[in-house]
Design a protein around this nucleic acid. Structure first.
Lengths: 338, 338
DNA sequence: GTGAGATTTGTTAACGCTAACAACCAAGGT
DNA sequence: ACCTTGGTTGTTAGCGTTAACAAATCTCAC
């Protein structure tokens, strides 16, 4: 392939001359226009190959008004959940022929989200996925009427914006019911930070399962998703009487709880049963291996792209509302009967 | 701000008319051209504000040949290391006014890397960071002479391509030396997968520390970074006689080793000391808390952008070679003297 | 064989911006 | 008064592609 003739990368006109056609015909070949003779097509294709031509997507985007780029706004992609979701998004988008442009926020406030959205809109993205697990982020989305398709992941009621999420309430219920089924009188809860919708959903599920069973719901302990906050909650729980079952709102905090229990000589699951949430890859190897609720982040990512693309191609918001991915119970060793 | 007059988003000509100047003057204001009267400038700025004008970056990119977008190719951004590195890259890039376009690979082979690079080059990125921890990826980079600035992260000798990395050999040495200093006769090693440069660097550091101390290096056990592979290695180690110290090539595998030891009744650090690598957020809460080697992924990400931007602005590869970030020893509870 | 219709190709004009150059104006030196 | 100089602004011409339309060619029935 004779690339590099004359330094400057070849453009459509060069291919056209090489193939003895007009540049428009080259364009047609490139865009799979039906009305091109097969013989012409192969001639053009050969010329493209010979010159090593690659079409300029920027020029294309200028005229079509479509960049085939999708924006992703996410909060702290260092965390397993967001990272996995973004990974799913990226895979699905690339499979559909879209590029992914990422903005990772340190903190999610209204200004942060607004700026990120503006930033991406400036770049000319065709649509945006906002991984908006916090109430404030979801709120921000609902408030700003963007003229560009948007999908929220884990987003609560985000006004007009369609939402893809895991059923957190169901997950909380599953975890709590499992512990009740094992014969525990009641279930304690280490919850996630106040502003997070996921944290609230899990609290709601936990509370609902307890209520349905007619049990008293103890005051939940507050955490911030970090192992350290779980550790501190664990130390509190270890010093309290009558704690036999704990539902911890994520696996990292559950790790902290387990650590605190180990230090205090509380045996798991001998004395206390523990259930986590997320099923991070490490959970199966905690001491003891953690019973938990798995979230299929990959599916969430894929679905969000599906919804977004449908919206883009339809040229307006579909009445899609809310797409809910079910959570999955994963029994391991950290829970046992009374 | 009277946005939305007439549906179609305003373009430079609209601003020009509004301000009573030519569109070129608007362009000059936008690009901070020095020769514009302050009075004219404010008039243009007011018009921009009034119309809610935002410049079209695609059109700009077409004529300037610069998209202010950087590509990132990474392997499995679900893992903590890559995720943190990409996060650092993203933050640094955005601070410098660049967009980030990500391609996350499932497997890194030559074709995969080549395709990803082509894909990003098509998009018109100004430069690319390749997170290339595998030998094959580094090789691929070295082989394909890209006409676009590239930086490799964790990349071994990548030919002409500048590299930013953590000093893996030093890390391995640090971990091993720590165990020797505690009085252990020798140190066993659970290594990462063969193709990974990081795995090889850590092996080399481990071996060098042992050699320097005049000790025999036992055959390393093979892992694949996953907790499960660490668990299996741990089971083997537990059944072997004379094992008192183990350096595990990452924290996740170390977790598996700890789990296996717990199951087999091997006390850590009572009978065997364990050192990990990475310092993931969970490590401090393992049972026992894991002594490990911290990698500053954020710094690596930031530096890679620094090197890349310098290369882009200089308009050619700088004689930068290799930028090495030192690892850091983090003592915790999983190691003790003989 | 001829005209209607379809198929295939070419020509021209955007898309919204910046670069290059030209034009204009005021100030200052001769 | 003239010419220069430099700051300030406007005009024109692309960047590389697709859209819209026009032109040429082919196909087939009558």
């Amino acid at each position: 392939m004779g690339v590099d003739r004359g330094r400057r990368p070849p453009v459509m006109a060069d291919v056209a001359k090489e193939a003895g056609v007009s540049h428009q015909t080259v364009s047609r070949v490139l865009n799979d226009h039906p009305n091109v003779r097969t013989e012409t097509r192969t001639r053009v294709l050969e010329a493209i190959d010979k010159l090593g031509y690659r079409r300029n997507l920027v020029a294309r985007a200028l005229v079509t008004k479509h960049s085939r780029t999708l924006g992703v706004v996410s909060f702290d992609t260092t965390l397993y959940g967001p990272a996995s979701t973004v990974y799913g998004i990226e895979q699905a988008a690339r499979a559909a022929g879209y590029f992914i442009s990422i903005v990772s926020l340190k903190s999610i406030d209204k200004t942060g989200v607004r700026d990120a959205l503006d930033y991406l809109a400036d770049q000319g993205v065709d649509g945006i996925v906002v991984v908006a697990p916090q109430r404030s982020a979801a709120q921000a989305l609902a408030d700003l009427p963007l003229d560009i398709p948007v999908v929220a992941v884990e987003g609560g009621e985000a006004g007009e914006v369609p939402v893809v999420c895991v059923d957190q309430v169901e997950g909380g219920r599953l975890a709590t019911q499992h512990l009740l089924d094992l014969g525990h009188e009641t279930v304690w809860h280490v919850r996630g930070p106040g502003d997070w919708l996921e944290a609230e959903g899990r609290v709601a599920g936990w509370r609902s399962a307890l209520e349905r069973a007619g049990r008293e719901a103890p005051e939940p302990l507050a955490g911030d998703w970090s192992p350290r906050s779980g550790y501190e909650a664990g130390r509190s729980l270890a010093s309290m009487a009558g704690v036999t079952a704990v539902f911890v709102a994520n696996d990292q905090m559950a790790l902290g709880v387990l650590r605190a229990f180990t230090e205090k000589g509380v045996r798991v699951p001998g004395q206390v049963s523990v259930v986590g949430f997320d099923d991070i890859p490490e959970s199966a190897f905690f001491s003891p291996p953690l019973t938990t609720i798995r979230q299929d982040f990959g599916a969430v990512g894929r679905h969000s792209i599906g919804v977004l693309l449908r919206q883009i191609e339809a040229g307006g918001p579909q009445a899609s509302g809310r797409l809910v991915v079910p959570p999955m119970f994963v029994p391991r060793v950290s829970t046992a009967g009374r």
